[in-house]
């Protein structure tokens, strides 16, 4: 039998949802253990520690998956360590690839985030205004350390070279299964690519008018609704009903799982290959299908702070928010 492919999983500033998607492979993952050996999976699943990873010889891990965004100096350090140990590095899930939901934190200063969390909530009891510190001396005898908090959230490729990207929050387990299958069989796209079926959410959505034999002519959106405004019809395109949906610009490796339960897409799958800046593309595409200025004004009123809307999962990767 050929040597097993050595695989590593490292969670940075994420929620472990991506790891759960791997666990959701269930029996398929058990079967895959015939072909792969998971040599590192911290902190979530296995006990090999950070210093064990640091002690490994360079390039001993064939494929490393990193999920979560980069916010602490420890994330930067561990991303660099993993890059050294891995022959192939995958930004796994939308946080590592584009910054993810917590990337929205970059629209606020570190001081704002700390002030809210450690001073200004109704239950916080902090008369001395203490903030967490990278190092502090407690009781005059304990030197204690914490990872330092960086000013902004960063994506993985802003720290190290990334070989492949996988979208989704989290990536659907069937997509993870397909990606691992491609790795085992060596059938990977060109370096720097997204591993994707190449279809938009609209392409896999059962409501797509083209699939329903309906009118293929482009229909302009004549009103903007929030999801709290009434109940959408379960069979008709949400955009055509006025519910803003990011299906046209988002990779559909999820199988349209939100649309299937009558909820619009918010873009976790990442951009259709070729689009570098998700939020800018979303703004441009949605803006171009709004019927007139009245509808555009409605969008601004219904969704104040458009940066948080269009860059819901992609702010740290965007060029627009840095220039505005």
């Amino acid at each position: 039998m050929a040597d097993k492919i050595k695989v590593g999983f490292l969670l940075l500033g994420g929620c472990a949802g991506c790891e759960m998607s791997v666990v959701d492979l269930s029996e398929k993952l058990v079967d895959a253990l015939e072909h792969i050996e998971i040599v590192f999976w911290a902190p979530t699943v296995a006990d090999v520690k950070y210093n064990d990873l640091e002690s490994m010889e360079d390039k001993t891990i064939d494929v490393a998956f990193i999920d979560g965004m980069v916010r602490l100096d420890e994330h930067i350090h561990m991303a660099k360590v993993m890059r050294k140990k891995a022959k192939t590095l995958i930004a796994f899930g939308v946080c590592a690839a584009l910054g993810g939901t917590a990337g929205l934190g970059s629209l606020h200063t570190k001081e704002d985030l700390f002030q809210k969390a450690f001073k200004n909530t109704p239950t916080t009891d902090n008369p001395d205004g203490i903030y967490p510190q990278p190092s502090c001396l407690v009781d005059g005898k304990y030197d204690l350390t914490l990872p330092a908090y960086e000013d902004k959230v960063r994506t993985l490729n802003q720290i190290v070279d990334v070989d492949y990207y996988i979208g989704g929050c989290p990536p659907h387990h069937s997509h993870v299964g397909a990606a691992i299958g491609a790795l085992v069989s060596g059938q990977l796209p060109a370096k720097g690519s997204w591993i994707t079926n190449g279809k938009a959410v609209c392409d896999v959505c059962t409501r797509n008018p083209a699939k329903q034999g309906g009118n293929l002519a482009r229909t302009m959106v004549d009103k903007v609704l929030r999801t709290v405004d009434g109940t959408p019809d379960a069979d008709t395109c949400l955009l055509q009903q006025g519910y803003i949906c990011f299906g046209p610009i988002t990779q559909g490796d999820c199988g349209g799982s939100c649309l299937n339960v009558n909820i619009p897409c918010r873009g976790c799958g990442g951009p259709i290959p070729g689009n570098e800046d998700y939020g800018a593309q979303a703004l441009s595409t949605i803006g171009s299908i709004l019927k007139d200025d009245t509808v555009t004004a409605q969008l601004m009123e219904k969704y104040p702070n458009l940066a948080k809307f269009f860059y819901r999962y992609a702010l740290p990767s965007g060029t627009l928010p840095k220039r505005m």
Binding site: C15, C18, G105, L146
Partner: peptide
């Protein structure tokens, strides 16, 4: 030592409230 702060309480400000249940899920993937 707990080593995570993402700032949800701050960055949900300004969001339409009905969107919140699908934003704060990301606090924990488990």
């Amino acid at each position: 030592h707990i080593q995570s702060l993402r700032g949800f309480e701050k960055f949900v400000e300004g969001r339409p409230a009905e969107e919140i249940p699908r934003i704060v899920t990301r606090i924990c993937g488990i």
